[in-house]
Design a protein around this nucleic acid. Sequence first.
DNA 1: TAGGCCATGTAACCGGTTACATGATTAG
DNA 2: CTAATCATGTAACCGGTTACATGGCCTA
Lengths: 182, 182
Amino acid sequence: MNIQTLILGILNFGDASGYEIKKQSIEGAFRYFVDISYGSIYPTLSKLEADKLVSCRAETQSGKPDKKVYSITDAGRTEFVRMLHQPPAFDKFKSEFLLLAMCAELTSRKTIQRAIDERIAEMEEMLAHIQDLRSECDHPATQWITNYGLHIKSADLEFLRNNRDSLLALAGTDTTLAEAAE
Amino acid sequence: MNIQTLILGILNFGDASGYEIKKQSIEGAFRYFVDISYGSIYPTLSKLEADKLVSCRAETQSGKPDKKVYSITDAGRTEFVRMLHQPPAFDKFKSEFLLLAMCAELTSRKTIQRAIDERIAEMEEMLAHIQDLRSECDHPATQWITNYGLHIKSADLEFLRNNRDSLLALAGTDTTLAEAAE
DNA sequence: TAGGCCATGTAACCGGTTACATGATTAG
DNA sequence: CTAATCATGTAACCGGTTACATGGCCTA
């Protein structure tokens, strides 16, 4: 999915500046299935404006720099809806953790332990955050996806907790390779 | 994670040609957390060979084109283990489906239904495939990650089945926008 | 007064994909 | 006879990131 569609989608939920779009992609619900950097947000916003898919108004703020607030136009919404009707591509997923787990015997117990414990902590944080999102928001579709996230991530955390020790047990006993790399 | 490490990781499980590496990244367990194309495999293999991290031997086959089979060297394994010891980056995840679900009311029932039913079918296929992987393979760490995958994907499928209808109910009733886009 | 937040933007770079080129063999 | 599988490789392209530039305000 290209950034244009993503930004149109974010703007569909409300007006925002480039800075706020970035924030939403880090803090909001989008965080879990989207990621964008300033280097792509600002140029895309300009292009979108040139194509009349968004409009822009300047807002002067006291004590803060001016900001350019973008709104999705009717043409933008039509375009976004058109994109939504294309069958969605299958989820893209990349995991360094899984590669590490799959090669557990090459590494030390210490490395595996750090990795899985950090993962468990991240997962707990994520669950707490999604719970917040759900309670703060009364938009039904957003609640549907937060429930989905909660369900999957609970299962994930459950597995990690129940199988942490069995993974640790797979860590390399041969310290020659592993220790040398630390 | 860069492709060099990925290829070193794949080669760590056994010698392979560029073609076979690609196959493993589509058919094997790697499929679920990795993706690479020929355009990056072949140049990377050359670079890896130049750096002495892999070695290469030509194999002539009857009835098939010759192939260049690569093996990881001791230096390559050391380098790979060194990379494994860096704390793994958090999983990268992108989902067009979640964006669609979050914007369900902008689209038609037909679109949502197609998307979720296709997702359910993909998930079932995935589960069946991971089950095959698990039964075919007796490598403990690989079994750990296949169990992990099975656990998470079962929960995923369960949610999709139980909440399919509630998502459908969110689809747009205002046909003006939605139908126009079909 | 240092660092963090707010805020916008650009240019260089790069990792990786797409599409193309080539060609033999085998299965339907 | 056509399509698929096996097999290797290159060049053009592109989407997106990183790092940099700029600067005011607020908090510790």
